[in-house]
Amino acid sequence: MYTSPEALLAILGMAVATIAIKVSGLLLADRLPRQGFAAAWLRHIPGAVLAALVAPALATGNLAEVAAALVTGGTFLLFRNLFLAMAAGVATVFLVRMLVGA
């Protein structure tokens, strides 16, 4: 159990930068109007961020990932259960990789 002043400074700096951004988002939201273009923009952010999180992983994926994405989506649409959808996706990736030997 040890550390150095340099490491401590780097970690504290990273923490302050991270917390400052998280707090700023909340505080800046107040300056944005509740309706009109900016409000519509805020409403569309969650879906767009999630789509941006998922798309590259699927675009760079191979057979296993694409098959698992279809299984995940299908399972979720059928059962509306997040954990079930996630487990089905993970199991599909595992099985397809084993079968294909990738």
Partner: peptide, 11 residues
């Protein structure tokens, strides 16, 4: 893949 699967279902 747990990460991608979770976010896909959330989306």
């Amino acid at each position: 893949f747990a990460f991608t699967a979770t976010f896909l279902a959330l989306l």
